[in-house]
Amino acid sequence: MSIIKIENLYKTFNTKNGDVNALKDINLDIEQGDIFGIIGLSGAGKSTLVRCMNFLEVPTSGNVIFENMNLGKLSKKELLKARQSMSMIFQGFNLMEQRNALKNVCYPLEIAGVKKAEAEKRARELLKIVGLEDREKSYPAQLSGGQKQRVAIARALATNPKVILCDEATSALDPTTTQSILELLKEINQKLQVTIIIITHEMSVIEKICNKVAVIDKSQIVECGFVKDIFINPKSEMARKLILPKDSIMRTLKTGSYFRIIFDSNFTHKPILSELILECNYPINLIYADSIEMLKDNAVGEMVIEKTGKKDIDEKIRQYLNSNNISFEEADK
């Protein structure tokens, strides 16, 4: 079931130097339970897009439909209410500096009109979920970046939202902390059935946690689908650039002829190279191999092998790959 649907969305900013089209004809369908990634370079429009989802930015035209409500048609009061089901976490954490961790988590509950004692009880439960039950009295200034983002996640969960929007939520964190925050988000997605939308410029974030991804380039969505599919077969140039930066291995190989073999989780435990050698009964030179581990239990990887130079053997390699449904491409330089 779709939880957020974006139809023909345009956003234009009127600036001194003329109109800037931040988003052009965006169409997205995000389903309940998805961990949906939106990736693009900075300036591509992804932050504007996520702000259009909760109407922090009002789209110039087009519709945002959240749980069958057209956000553009809601009154101000209804919109504020809808936002309570659609939390947001930020790159800069945006915690209130003069409130301690507990009071920060209580904030959305205060706004929702929950009684103080009840709010504090709920806030304590949430701090426990994010692993900060012993830091409730700490102020943001006393917490590390990762801890602050955990408090922000607890705050985002307070009103039992259907969706959490993450705007570059891990970009200010070191790799280890990023990993732990992503794992926490994934846990929340699985345990609480919260749909998560992640804006990022980092491919690794998409790899680790998202099931679907939209690639945004120059204000438009150039590609959208399952992470696994786009990984194996990126169609747009931007997707190739972002999703397969390792594609550059093919560019660094200046001369020679190669097979680039791309395999997904179905082949994780299949000894492809050994089978190829046995099949062809010919020594095969491995140039490059890499696999990317994903939290979604999919291991995707690629391998570059040199062509043998013998037409019949190269043909055997093609046949083997085709018959096993393994994607590959050829490069002759």
Partner: peptide, 29 residues
Amino acid sequence: DSGIIEAAEAMGTPTFKIITKVLIPEAKP
């Protein structure tokens, strides 16, 4: 910090409450 105000807006805070619950307490010092 404008980010804090944005967060408050994203949590569905009405304008008057942003003043009383965010702007003034955060600017207190």
